[in-house]
Design a protein around this nucleic acid. Structure first.
Lengths: 235, 235
DNA sequence: CCGCCGCTTCACAAAACTGTAACATAGGCA
DNA sequence: TGCCTATGTTACAGTTTTGTGAAGCGGCGG
């Protein structure tokens, strides 16, 4: 597994540590020491993944993350956030903002590399247009068709994108903010509740094509106070 | 270290060899003799790791690997590829396709087990964002699910947060003030007793899913005059 | 220009979750 | 033992959150 990785940290020592570990693991490494450079290199260097420190002077990792998500060319760039502490609130915020994973310092080189690889692997299919499958449901990005047991399921654009996003990480809970960010795009002003309405429609569409006979059933699970997750429920 | 391992090989002798070595090392083993069965078991059996032969009639290890990677539910399944020859080109191809490690035949039992263990160790943190486990109870932050012996336990938001907090530091005693601060957020004024009520609810939910047969029992221990702690009590 | 289609918001009902009060117990101590 | 305090539990009424039908809008193709 190869890949070009952009690392961003204002502390030279930390930067060096990251570089060494990632290069040892066979990755090509780009580096930046502040948010501005990071944004520049993210556009110019076409990295496959970004590892960025949470706290930095000037533009923090949060800001960089937001900005990248709002630019079309970097909207899908996988991002791993580094944080000094493992506070749950930080973690939630980080993921809300659009980070794909979150590592707390200190971390082992092994963990770093494992997460980088995992994330690259996870995101590749979206880029490579591979068919996503979960609990009997098929979603084909290249044809933008969704089907179950060969039967086609028609979805509106929004429903399709919601489903596609959730199928990338089944079972994972997405907050409404995350969904709005990634499906509608960052900075768009829409009510949270709009997500609910689309989820309702998505549910109806999926239900209409539910597998006739048993086995596991695909459902959109509501996590009260948080968001939604694609999930398989025992029949 | 425990784990469920799916082994796939079209040669019964080889399959037996793998099974024997892995079971001796304390792993639970599932097996399949062809690609189709392998795919089926990979989904249904929820193995933690897959060991598959490179060359097989019909669907080869490569194909199986590809397909597994394209399915959301098995995208992150660690895979070890077995190959007769140690050709570098094979190795590269294998890793490219998504295998996580590569063993050439013939191999020593010791090598096999060592690699399996190494891979499990590496992938455990990366699979889920650190699933919390204590006394048979599992809490997965990314799916926000709590389960015991595979059975889901539904918790309200407050109960979930309380449990999550306490599972980060099992056995540690938390005062009501600490719990209110961390779960409700400081600045919120609620009666201390509210914590008691939620603890009661949490206890009830956990009890309802209590392990049927012995081993240690998870309890919420009350520290009179102070607070609560998650604790394991001998049966 | 009309009509269809999908998106958003609104409104209202249903469901889930909460905090508090009240009452029942248990623990500690003189 | 008897009293006083801390905790366990339950019931309930109030809130908050979610599901969903329906209306309003705006774009686009015919």
């Amino acid at each position: 597994m190869s890949g070009k990785i952009l690392i961003v940290d204002d502390e030279p020592a930390q930067l060096e540590l990251l570089r060494y570990n990632l290069e040892t693991a066979g990755f090509e490494v780009l580096q930046a020491e502040n948010g501005a450079d990071a944004l520049e290199m993210a556009s110019a260097g076409m990295p496959d993944l970004l590892v960025i420190d949470w706290m930095m002077p000037e533009a923090s990792g949060i800001d960089v993350c937001r900005i990248l998500r709002s630019r079309a060319e970097t909207k899908a760039l996988p991002i791993i956030m580094l944080s000094a502490r493992g506070e749950e609130s930080d973690r939630t915020l980080g993921l809300d903002i659009g980070a794909d994973d979150y590592i707390t310092k200190p971390f082992s080189p092994r963990e770093l590399v494992a997460r980088v690889k995992a994330l690259l692997r996870r995101s590749r299919p979206m880029l490579a247009d591979e068919v996503l499958t979960f609990a009997g449901l098929e979603l084909n990005p290249s044809t933008m068709r969704v089907s179950r047991e060969g039967k086609n399921i028609h979805l509106g654009p929004k429903e399709y994108q919601l489903l596609a996003l959730m199928m990338e990480s089944p079972e994972r809970v997405f907050s409404r903010e995350q969904l709005l960010d990634r499906v509608w795009g960052h900075g768009i002003y829409v009510e949270d509740r709009t997500v609910d309405v689309h989820m309702s429609r998505l549910r109806r569409a999926l239900n209409a094509a539910q597998a006739s006979q048993g086995e596991d059933t695909l459902v959109i699970r509501t996590v009260r106070g948080t968001g939604y997750a694609l999930s398989r429920e025992p029949k």
